[in-house]
């Protein structure tokens, strides 16, 4: 076959494995020159030998060394197989696919990043990028909601980000345990403590659809227009390149025109039952 077959994965080596929580693992992959050819917000199709293939957002660049990181929650057969990978293991990679967060548009603006659950993973490369060129942005706020204290991802990163004087970081949990001394409540409750300038602010949301809907509604109520709010959508995907049909949401082929969308482009669809 002469044409490039977009369904054939490249082979990547697992360079490092870091356990984040009981069911979440971050793996660092190296597939040569193409490893870091991604934009924040894009995803790869990761193939666990014989088990299956799933879309996983890039969760950042490693602090040291090359490669690309993915943070995976074990919820099904394929993600469980990916989470069982060891250093030196092999995984299939296709991509990167999809649209990116509006990092360049955010320059010169205040940026509010709101994450729910595993949704912090696709935001991590944006936060890394912002920190790397911090002088280009205004006030930057990161708000993160996890289900329980045990589900908090990237604890080392969060500690580092909270230690900076140029980032405002808020963390909340839906359900606290006896050890928790932090904020309790859904992530939108953190917004009330944030000083927002509706004329200067760009918002980036990632998490369960219901969380993004409520967060967007709160931001809109605070005067931020829909065109300044960005979301990342999750849909079933088999090909990643707009050929298999699974990821449709109304007229959107989410893998190709998304997963990152400006809210005014998809906001109406988010409110439609079973679209």
């Amino acid at each position: 076959m002469t044409a490039v077959d977009s369904m054939r994965p490249a082979i990547a080596t697992v360079r490092a494995v870091r356990r984040e929580t009981a069911d979440v693992v971050t793996i660092r992959l190296d597939h040569g020159d193409r490893s870091d050819a991604f934009e924040p917000g894009q995803f790869h199709m990761l193939y666990a030998f014989g088990a299956g293939e799933v879309p996983i957002s890039v969760s950042g660049r490693p602090a040291r060394g090359g490669g690309v990181e993915h943070t995976i929650r074990a919820v099904g057969a394929t993600t469980r197989a990916l989470c069982r990978l060891r250093r030196g293991g092999t995984v299939g990679v296709r991509g990167p696919f999809g649209t990116a967060w509006p990092v360049e548009e955010a320059r010169g603006r205040d940026v509010v990043l709101v994450a729910g659950g595993i949704g912090l993973a696709p935001l991590r490369p944006v936060i890394q990028r912002i920190i790397a060129e911090r002088e280009l942005y205004g006030r930057v706020t990161v708000l993160y909601g996890a289900r329980t204290p045990d589900d908090i991802l990237f604890e080392a990163d969060l500690a580092r980000w909270r230690g900076r004087f140029d980032l405002q970081v808020g963390v909340t949990v839906d359900h606290a345990d006896a050890s928790w001394r932090g904020h309790v409540g859904v992530v939108t409750t953190l917004l009330t403590d944030v000083d927002l300038d509706p004329d200067a602010c760009l918002a980036i949301l990632c998490g369960p659809e219901v969380m993004m809907r409520f967060t967007a509604a709160e931001l809109e109520a605070r005067g931020i227009p829909r065109r300044e709010i960005w979301v990342s959508l999750e849909r079933n995907m088999h090909c990643g390149v707009g050929l298999c049909g699974h990821c449709q949401m109304g007229p959107e082929l989410v893998c190709r025109r998304g997963p990152v969308y400006r809210l005014d482009h998809v906001g109406r669809l988010l409110g439609v039952r079973e679209v």
């Binding site: 030998f49 014989g50 299956g52 088999h238 090909c239 050929l243 298999c244 049909g245 699974h246």
Partner: peptide, 19 residues
């Protein structure tokens, strides 16, 4: 109608897989 699904399968030994 063009929609397709992929299934990743293995032989019984687990040494060979196919899509």
């Amino acid at each position: 109608c063009f929609c397709t699904s992929v299934s990743d399968l293995t032989d019984i030994t687990g040494a060979t897989a196919w899509r």
